[in-house]
Simulated scan of single mutants.
Amino acid sequence: MSQIETILEIKDLCVEFKTVEGTVQAVDHLSYTLHKGEKLGIVGESGSGKSVSSLGMMQLIPNPPGKITGGEIFYKGQDLVKASEKEMQKIRGNEISMIFQEPMTSLNPIIKCGKQIAESLRLHRGMDKKSAMTEAVRMMRAVGIANPEVRAHEYPHQMSGGMRQRVMIAMALACRPQILIADEPTTALDVTIQAQILDLIRDLNESMETSVIFITHDLGVVSELCDTVIVMYTGHIVEKAPAQELFAEPKHPYTVGLLNAIPRITKDRPPLETIEGMVPNPTERITGCSFSPRCPHATARCRETEPPMIQLSEQRTVRCWLYADKEKEA
């Protein structure tokens, strides 16, 4: 079996924000690898650090109030944490692209959609104006926009939410990036458009061998698209596993709670389960496991000492004391 190529490696990434209420540790010693052509899903509740970790990768965290306080992000042997703004400008949109949550606020409202796509081609590929616009129209057609020659000359407000999201995807993929970060790209879209966007990302992943980091709180979307899943809670990874294994047999109590909270469309559907309690205040530092106040299996050990990441198999890890005595520590 040939060696799988690692395209991105994050080691002990820490990101914090200074607020009037105190310091928020948004990402706390985050570590994972992304392989070439892999579709990696990152899931968790709002505030778990999903988006912040990817913004840190792109050096897009506003400073102040945010700051990367530790860790390394290796892309092709280069540590992006130490990269200069000039170096990052060559990488952003060219080798690593990002689809943001809300296209209406991410697209420039006073520039025509085709021109916004063409701009990245002129910047990164050195194309002239005419060639860049021709390629922008081709990309709009590739992402399923009808009459791209006409739509390229329309402004964002003239398009529906689904069409604007397709423009964002066309812009992100125009330079054929090595890594595509999709930050909740199907939020606020109806289910038909959601399915089309997911099919589009899957097709582009296969045709271009682009690695995908898919950030979402929707586990249903992850089960459809991703090869590997990372579950985050309060800035930590609490579980990482191949998608099929995670959905068949979740290990961490938080993952179990998330899966049990998904509504089931069956004749004799059980009552909807919830996870007891609330996500802790971001400025609050909890002793021990941060999930222990909500966990039905919490013990005194959980409340006193933070659990390490436990290696259950070559591809499965979990941060929970339930497994510490049974398996070796990572």
Rank of each mutant, 00 (worst) to 15 (best):
69 T>H: 11
284 E>T: 10
107 L>C: 10
5 E>H: 09
130 K>E: 08
242 P>N: 06
99 I>K: 00
259 L>C: 07
92 R>C: 06
278 M>I: 13
183 D>N: 03
162 G>Y: 00
307 P>V: 13
70 G>W: 05
212 V>Y: 07
202 R>F: 09
185 P>I: 02
11 K>C: 06
32 Y>C: 14
135 E>D: 06
116 Q>W: 05
189 L>Y: 05
123 L>Q: 15
135 E>N: 01
7 I>E: 14
124 H>A: 13
293 P>G: 13
12 D>M: 06
314 E>T: 01
129 K>H: 08
136 A>Y: 02
19 T>N: 13
240 K>L: 14
322 L>W: 01
70 G>Q: 06
130 K>I: 11
287 T>D: 14
277 G>V: 09
219 L>P: 02
179 I>C: 12
149 E>Q: 05
90 K>M: 14
291 F>E: 08
248 A>M: 14
247 F>P: 10
110 I>S: 10
99 I>G: 01
57 M>L: 15
44 G>V: 13
260 N>C: 12
158 Q>S: 01
298 A>P: 14
289 C>L: 00
281 N>K: 08
142 A>C: 10
192 T>L: 03
283 T>L: 10
321 W>S: 12
81 V>S: 02
282 P>D: 00
268 D>Q: 11
318 V>T: 15
329 E>C: 08
286 I>D: 02
176 R>F: 06
295 C>I: 09
109 P>Q: 10
48 S>E: 09
321 W>T: 08
247 F>E: 04
314 E>A: 07
199 D>Q: 13
135 E>A: 06
221 V>Q: 03
2 S>V: 11
